[in-house]
Every structure is written in C-alpha cells, then in structure tokens.
Design a protein around this nucleic acid. Structure first.
Length: 521
DNA sequence: ATAGGGTTAG
C-alpha cells in the first residue's frame, strides 16, 4: 500500500486539506487531468485511516442522508406558493398530509431557510409551520430569519422576532450584530444604536466587542461621523482596542477622507496601539482605488521598514489586483515577485489573482505553470474561482478542449464544484465554434440537472444573444419566456435583438409578447 | 463584516 501511494505521489499531486489534515485525492497527470478511480480512492482511504478520516467518512454518509432530504425539501418547496402571505403558506403546509409526515431536523430547516433567503414570506411561513409541528428552533435558525427579514427591509417583523427571541433568551451577540447591520443597511442607523442601548435587556454586555460591532455597522454604511460621536460618548465607560481604530480607518477611507484616516492612526498611537498591517492595508487599498500607485509604493516601503506592520498576502494581493485592473500587468507581476522575495506565503486568493493577471498579460503558459506546478507544490488546493479563471483564460485562447478537461476535473473534485460563472466562457465558446446542438445543449443540461445551477440574468443574456446570432431564435425565445417566468427582467437591448429576429421569422405571437415586456421596461 | 478577486454583452 505504501509503495502504491509512493508511486502515486511521484506521478501525481496530492493536496493537503488543512481542516481535516488528511489527503485529498486530487490528481494532476501532465496535461490531462483525471479524478482518481474509486479503487485508488479506497486505497488512499485505507492508507489515511485516522480519526480525521473517519470524520470525513461520516461526512460522506451524512451527505447520503442529505440527498434523501433533498426530496423532502423538494416536496416542501413545491407546496409553498410564492407570493402568498406567510400565514397562508403556514396554513397550506399545516393541512398537507405529506408535509406533516416529513421528519424535521436542523439541517432541513437550515436548508429551507437558505432556499427562501430572498423570499421572506415563504421563509417565515415555513419557520412558523415547523413550530406548529412542535419543533423547537435553534438560535441559529432565528438568526437566519432575522437576517432574511432585515435584508428584505421587513424591519417591524425583524423587531418582533427579536422580542420573541428575547423571551426565550436566544439573543446572542451574533443576533444583535445582524439586527444592527440590517438597520444600518436600511438607512435606520438610529435604530441600530437603539438595539445597542437595549443590549442589557437581552442579557448581553456593553463592552469593547459589542461597541466595535456597532461602530463597524455604522462605518460600513458610510455613517462614520455618527460612529465617531457615539464613540466619544462611550469611550469613558468602554475602552477601545486596536480594532476600534482600524474600524474607523476603514470608515474614513470608505468616504474618501484619507486625512482623517491618518489622523486616526495618530489617535491610535495616543491610546498606546501601534498601527498594524490591517491599518496600513486599508489605506493602501484606498490609494489602489484611486490608481495612485506612487502612494501605494511609498506606503509599501514604509510598511516593510516598520516593525509590526509588514505587508502580508492580503496587502500584496490588493496591490497586484489593482495594478492588473489598471492594465499594468508587468508591475502586477513584479508585486508577486516582491512578495516571493520577502518570503510571504501565497494563498488561494493570491494565486487566483495571479493566474488572472498572467492571463490578461498574454502569458497563459505561465498561468498554466502556476496552476499545474506552483500551486500543487505549495499545497494550496484550487477552489472554484481558480478553476473559473483557468477555464476563462483557456477559452479565450481558443483551447476549449483543455477548458472542458478542467470542467470535468471540477465535476469529479471533492474540493469544489462548478458554479454559473464557470460556464459563461464555455457557453460563449460554443457560439464561437458553432458547437450549438452538440455541446451547448449538453452543457446547459449538466448545469441544471447535474449541478442544480439556475441560469441568471447574465447567462440568459449571453444565450439569447448568441442564439439569435446563430439563427436559432425559436430557442432564444424559449429562454426568453423562461426568464420572464422566473421574474428575471431581460435587458432592453436583448428584447430589441430578439424582436428583430422573431419578426424576420414571422413569429408574430412571440413578437407581441416581447413588445409587452418592452413596455414594462 | 477589522483587509483581498473575477465576470457577460460583438
């Protein structure tokens, strides 16, 4: 077994997953990529039989159980008619024999709430229905619902739920954080402060941590001046820490008042805290947005010289991406080099950005080298974004076959799965190469059936435009109807294009329907 | 949520 593994390790790359510290069976072989055969997987499983691996196996079993619940979710989702009030939804579920025989678990509730994360009435209806069946919600589920209600600007409902949670002593700092953030996001920063004032009634303490939470929610919503006033009131009872000041630095940068950000650094020093890598990185980020790279380099040098605030992978990644965005590719790659020189360890986000920069710089072979050699040798596993960058780049280079190989690798990967963005460049390539009936159909089918991805506005736009150009406007019109059914409004240009094509084909009913949609835009 | 990325449409 050991020799088998050894020989595999020589010819393949095995990535280490830090969270489980066990081998993930993920293999590169030269230019072609394959997932390991099940035989090989089971041999690895035997080799790595450790407590961590046992946990991984349990997770797999859990996943099998979850797949049966998938059908339960399907039944419930089917029964919930979108657009009804939460009470109507509750009633219709409560009177349904099939629904009432479904076993309720935390996992099922979480998944349902996730499914209805943009539909507060359904979320609330399902939540109440579970209660009616005698199910006791966890604090976590309450938190999710607080978030959903807040996101959909149902502030009264959110407040009521908070009161309910208070009675059951279920309010945590996390709950309060979500509520404050949603109030700030809804333009009601006074209510965010009110929640903070009531902290005691929830059995929580007003301390540095909760104060920082309040200040951060205000700063993120550009209410840094209000945050400042509140801080001045509070600081006699609650002592600030370094985070408090970093929050303000970020707040000032967000409203483009970098002078105040520098001033905050002085204030920080006055309180006995040294500006750290986060303080500097935040200001560097500000200059990146302004494309003021002179200042960026100046600050980078300053940091490298200073103690306690040397740039880290986050700092370098921000700078490199900003340079690439400004089409300064050579400089972007020099940052990567500089990072290597100072011995700063890369991570996945850095590699994603690097691969993207290399692709844009017209150096795809180097991007491939990073992906195939450098990443495996540093033990950093690729994620969905890494694959997406690679696939986009390969499609751009007209190397669709290699791109499809990578897609296949993702599909069989244990680490990450394709998302809608994975498919954009591949779909686009189908139009370029004319492989519409052969490949496009297959890809769309896989997206929906294999990966349960639903097409979004961008995907529909790309497809309708491509199909019109390929003289397949009947298919384009089907997609048009599908997106209307999902309440996704097409762009005006898409309508114009489709209308023109449909008229040429004498499809007058379709033309009429498109015109009706256009009137609403 | 104390900091970081990309992306379609001729």
């Amino acid at each position: 077994m050991v020799s088998l593994l050894g020989s595999c390790l020589r010819t393949t790359r095995v990535f280490l997953d830090p969270s489980f510290s066990c081998a993930l069976y993920f293999v590169h072989c030269g230019h072609s990529f394959h997932a390991l055969s099940s035989v090989f997987v089971s041999s690895l499983v035997e080799t790595f039989e450790t407590p961590h691996f046992a946990k991984r196996k349990l997770d797999c079993q859990e996943q099998c159980l979850n797949s049966t619940r998938q059908s339960d979710i399907g039944i419930l989702v089917e029964k919930v008619r979108v657009g009804n009030s939460h009470d109507e939804i509750l009633q219709s579920l409560a009177h349904d024999q099939t629904c009432n025989s479904i076993h309720l678990s935390h996992d099922l509730v979480n998944r349902l709430l996730f499914h209805f994360k943009d539909d507060w009435k359904s979320a609330l209806g399902v939540f109440r229905w579970a209660e009616l069946r005698g199910y006791k919600h966890k604090s976590e589920a309450y938190d999710t619902l607080v978030d959903i209600l807040g996101k959909m600007k149902q502030m009264d409902q959110m407040e009521a739920l908070l009161e309910e949670m208070k009675k059951g002593q279920l309010v945590t700092l996390k709950t309060v954080g979500k509520a404050m953030r949603r109030f700030s996001g809804a333009g009601q920063w006074e209510n965010a402060v009110r929640v903070f004032d009531k902290l005691g009634t929830f059995g929580l303490e007003k301390n540095t941590e909760s104060m920082n939470l309040l200040l951060d929610t205000l700063c993120k919503e550009r209410k840094v001046e209000q945050a400042r006033e509140i801080f001045l009131e509070l600081k006699s009872h609650i002592s600030p820490n370094a985070n408090t000041f970093n929050i303000f630095i970020h707040g000032w940068c967000k409203v483009c008042r970098v002078d105040e950000a520098y001033w905050t650094i002085q204030e920080m020093r006055g309180h006995g805290f040294l500006p750290c890598v986060i303080s500097y990185s935040t200001i560097i980020q500000f200059y990146c947005c302004r494309c003021d790279f002179c200042k960026v380099y100046e600050l980078l040098d300053e940091m490298e010289a200073a103690l306690g605030s040397t740039p880290n992978v986050v700092t370098y990644t921000s700078v490199m991406s900003a340079l690439a965005k400004s089409e300064k590719y050579e400089e972007a790659l020099e940052i990567a080099q500089r990072m290597r020189l100072v011995g700063c360890k890369p991570d996945a986000l850095f590699y994603n950005s690097l691969i993207h920069s290399l692709g844009r710089a017209g150096r795809p072979q180097e991007a491939v080298h990073v992906f195939e050699e450098e990443m495996p040798s540093t033990g950093i596993p690729p994620n969905t974004s890494t694959y997406n960058s690679m696939i986009a780049m390969l499609c751009h280079q007209a190397q669709e076959l290699k791109a499809l190989n990578l897609l296949n690798e993702m599909e069989t990967s244990m680490i990450c799965k394709p998302d809608v963005q994975t498919y954009y460049p591949l779909l686009k390539s189908c139009f370029r190469t004319g492989k519409i009936d052969s490949l496009l159909r297959q890809l769309l089918d896989d997206m929906v059936k294999k990966h349960h991805l639903s097409l979004d506005k961008s995907a529909y736009t790309l497809l309708i435009h491509g199909l019109c150009r390929a003289n397949k406007c009947d298919w384009a019109y089907c997609l048009f109807e599908e997106m209307i059914g999902k309440d996704i409004m097409p762009r005006y240009r898409t309508c114009c294009l489709l209308l023109e094509e449909v008229k040429l084909k004498h499809l007058y009913d379709a033309a009429k329907k498109i015109e009706i949609v256009m009137q609403k835009l």
